[in-house]
């Protein structure tokens, strides 16, 4: 096996995979996309200048791969429909929740559902910051943004998730909480 691949795999594979999984919310798709990340990395590895850390560099490639995937997903038909059907962008809860999430407690499942209402960039910020524990500056590096943009996006996204959680709560109620109330 390629030594570069070995090194990348050992150091970053699971991180990149997890990031892609939460971005596209589908294991098979994440598996395909992580391959694409490797291909792009190999193509441009010689151009990696070490200005940023290897990790943020890999994350930035993974994020670009995910964005490209979303663009491809949106064929011209969807783009057209989207123009006339605003409700479709509001409600899109048809993806099945992956097994890894369904075994978690209900609140976690809800957070996962709410992440769907975020844009790709918002989701990337949240995943980098809270799932991968990147700092604000690392996140900014991976996204090629300013730190203040990361901060405001993070703030807005948390607000959005909170709002979605509340509306979910009003719709469905939290069974675990009911249990708690009965006690």
């Amino acid at each position: 096996m390629d030594s570069v691949f070995d090194e990348l795999y050992n150091n970053y594979h699971q991180d990149v995979f997890q990031f892609l999984f939460y971005m596209v919310r589908n294991r098979e798709q994440a598996e395909d996309l992580v391959q694409e990340v490797y291909i792009r990395v190999f193509k441009s590895y010689h151009r990696f200048e070490g200005k940023s850390s290897e990790k943020t560099w890999l994350f930035s490639i993974a994020r670009n791969v995910a964005i490209d995937y979303f663009r491809k997903q949106k064929g011209w038909k969807d783009k057209l429909l989207e123009r006339f059907d605003w409700s479709s962008s509001q409600v899109k809860d048809d993806d099945p929740i992956p097994e890894e999430i369904t075994v978690q407690k209900e609140e976690i499942q809800w957070v996962y559902k709410c992440l769907e209402y975020c844009t790709a960039d918002q989701r990337a910020v949240i995943i980098f910051r809270f799932l991968h524990d990147l700092s604000i500056s690392e996140t900014a590096e991976a996204l090629g943004w300013s730190e203040s943009k990361v901060k405001t996006t993070q703030h807005r996204t948390l607000k959005l998730i909170k709002k979605q959680m509340e509306s979910l709560y009003q719709k469905e109620g939290l069974t675990s909480e009911k249990v708690r109330v009965e006690r």
Partner: peptide, 22 residues
């Protein structure tokens, strides 16, 4: 609390053999 919940999200791993991926 939202941040806490996010941090509790499960760790997802790729279970494929690295050789297969390569």
């Amino acid at each position: 609390e939202i941040e806490r919940l996010l941090r509790q999200m499960p760790i997802i791993q790729d279970h494929r053999n690295p050789r297969d991926i390569y």
